[in-house]
Computed example of a mutant assay.
Amino acid sequence: MMATVSLVDVAIGPSVGLLPLLALGPAFAALVGGWRRTAAIGLLAMLLTVTLGLYDDLFDGVRGFVSVVSVLGVTAAGLVAVSMRQRREAELASVRSIAEAAQRVLLKPVPRLAGQLRAAVSYTSAVAEARIGGDLYEVVAAPQGVRVIVGDVQGKGLEAVETAAVVLGAFREAALDEADLTAVGRRLSRSVDRQLEGEKFVTAILAEVTDHEVTFLNYGHPAPLLIHADGASALPEPPAYALPLGLSAHAPSAPLPYRADFRPGDQLLLYTDGITEARDGAGRFYPLPERAHLLKEHDPEAALETLRADLLQHIGGPLQDDAAMLLLRYR
């Protein structure tokens, strides 16, 4: 930029008065570089200004001095801006480190092996630069079987994260203590009802995998995708959908458990509505059951990444809602 201004000034002479434009060099340097780079670019701009001012005989009047003051002023302002930007970047890095620590506490990595199951998770937050949001998941290897939860908190932002923490804490405790999945659901519902305020709610699905069978409790959540070893797939739905967690005062009864066969070679995908409600440019929802074949890869993490890439290709842009997927494979 400064080279262009210098060449044009030499070519057309001092009549146009381009020298103050040399201040653009340190101005843009302050946006991307540190104070050393900004100062160096400012010094170079000053040398060019003085050199061209002498070449154009501008110091016989005020124009040369105005150009010098312009470059000095912009360089000084750039150095101040660099200092402020670096301080904000340091604060942002500190906040991000705290957020990552909170993420490790809230959404712990699921165990790769749990009994006869292989587990993998994919999570994408709709908020730019965020790694956690209102979706939640957990896998607990209890004496009675492997128990899992996938849920979606109403709303977004910090309040949704706080609600997700409440649900996960209650589930982790109940999953290890209660004798059956129905008791886990009752305890989880009581805990959420006590701690949620206003009209907040959480859709969730609970699952318990035992020998060759999986039991579900569905609190207003999308039905899971069950893929059998022969490639056939199904969406096991409850006899009747119950209200989400947090709204039990309005529910006539608790959700009823229902079961499905789950044998070696089968896969179970639990997900949030950020997957099935993702739309393409024509408004078509993502056809998850039709994409079951994408989960055939040997590595479950790679299978989920393939499905996630296909989802992003379908919508042709960033997700508008948090999207979580938990894949269980019966080994």
Rank of each mutant, 00 (worst) to 15 (best):
P222C: 09
V95T: 09
L326E: 11
Y271I: 04
G265F: 10
L245A: 08
P111L: 02
Q116A: 14
N218H: 05
G61W: 06
T51H: 12
D57R: 13
L295P: 06
A309N: 10
L92I: 13
A179Q: 11
Q320H: 11
V68P: 13
R263G: 01
A278K: 02
G13M: 05
A130I: 01
P300R: 06
A234S: 13
L92V: 07
R37K: 10
A170S: 10
V121T: 08
G17A: 10
A234T: 13
T4E: 06
G33P: 03
A254V: 03
K156H: 12
Q144K: 08
R186H: 07
T215P: 00
E237Q: 13
R190W: 03
R172P: 11
L270G: 03
F171R: 01
D310M: 05
L327M: 05
S125M: 03
P236R: 09
V68T: 06
A45W: 11
A99Y: 02
E129S: 08
R104D: 15
I227V: 15
R88S: 13
E305Q: 08
R172E: 11
Q267A: 15
P14S: 15
H212A: 14
L268Y: 12
S94K: 14
R37T: 15
V74N: 00
P252E: 08
G73Q: 02
A324F: 00
H314V: 02
G133M: 06
A323T: 15
Y137C: 09
L181W: 02
V95G: 01
A99R: 13
Y137S: 14
L176H: 04
L326S: 09
E305C: 01
A119Y: 02
T163N: 11
Y286C: 10
V150H: 03
R187C: 06
A120E: 03
G133W: 11
D322H: 04
P255C: 07
V71W: 00
M2W: 04
K296F: 00
I132M: 15
E129H: 10
K108H: 14
L58F: 00
V166A: 01
A242Q: 04
A120V: 09
A242P: 02
V110W: 11
G145Q: 02
Q116C: 05
D299S: 06
I98M: 14
A175T: 02
A27Y: 14
P14Y: 05
D152E: 10
L206W: 02
L268Q: 12
P239C: 04
E213S: 12
